Simulated assay, not measured.
Amino acid sequence: MNVPLTCPITAVAPLLPHSGRMVLLDSITDYGEQHLTATATVGPDHILLQNNRLPCFLGMEIMAQGIGALTGCHARNAGRPVRLGFLLGTRKLDLFADSIPVHTRLLVKVRESVMDATGFGVFDCSLYWTDAPENEKHTLPADGLLAQASLNVYSPHQNNQDNQAV
């Protein structure tokens, strides 16, 4: 039997079907059956930067990786391999900033809303900033909320052994 992962989890890459610079999460600070909280940093070499800033709409990829990390935690705890998942789209996307400056620390929260037996799921997600360069804080929402969305995801079954999404 596998020993369940305990937080904080700083080795996030093994829980995602990504590698190298495409791993956008720094750590997982909390997770459970239907939720996960993680941190991320917008570094100067962040793969999604445009004009030295992260467009807020690309925060969807960070939120999607939160979903993938949750599924990866469950797979790892069950002794299964991490599976590939797909971000199908979003609904109810609300953006509260245009872009996010380099050196901003982020907090991502995901919560399962719907999961079906085919591998389709919907997750309610939010992205917050927790720290930013002093000269950039005025460009960010005072309450910290950068984006929230319901993300539609899909993870095809492999040998019909499990029914988890991304």
Rank of each mutant, 00 (worst) to 15 (best):
V102A: 15
Q164K: 07
R91E: 08
G85T: 14
P81D: 03
D30T: 03
N159L: 10
I67Y: 03
V23Q: 14
R53V: 14
V110W: 00
L25G: 04
S155D: 05
T71P: 01
T10K: 14
G68S: 11
S113L: 06
D116E: 08
P14E: 15
L16Q: 07
L88T: 00
R105Q: 11
T71W: 01
H103K: 14
D30S: 07
L54H: 09
M60P: 00
I67K: 06
C7K: 10
P44N: 15
Q148V: 05
D162M: 12
A97K: 05
A38W: 00
V166K: 15
V108E: 00
L25M: 13
G144D: 08
G32D: 07
L146C: 07
M22G: 14
L106R: 15
G32Y: 01
H103N: 11
N77V: 08
N2P: 13
L145Y: 06
K137L: 05
L48V: 11
A11M: 09
C56M: 08
L84R: 12
D26S: 15
L107R: 06
S113I: 07
A97H: 12
M60T: 13
I28K: 02
T118F: 02
L25T: 05
I9R: 05
N159I: 04
G32R: 12
R111M: 02
T10N: 02
L58N: 10
T39Y: 02
C125P: 05
C125I: 09
A13M: 12
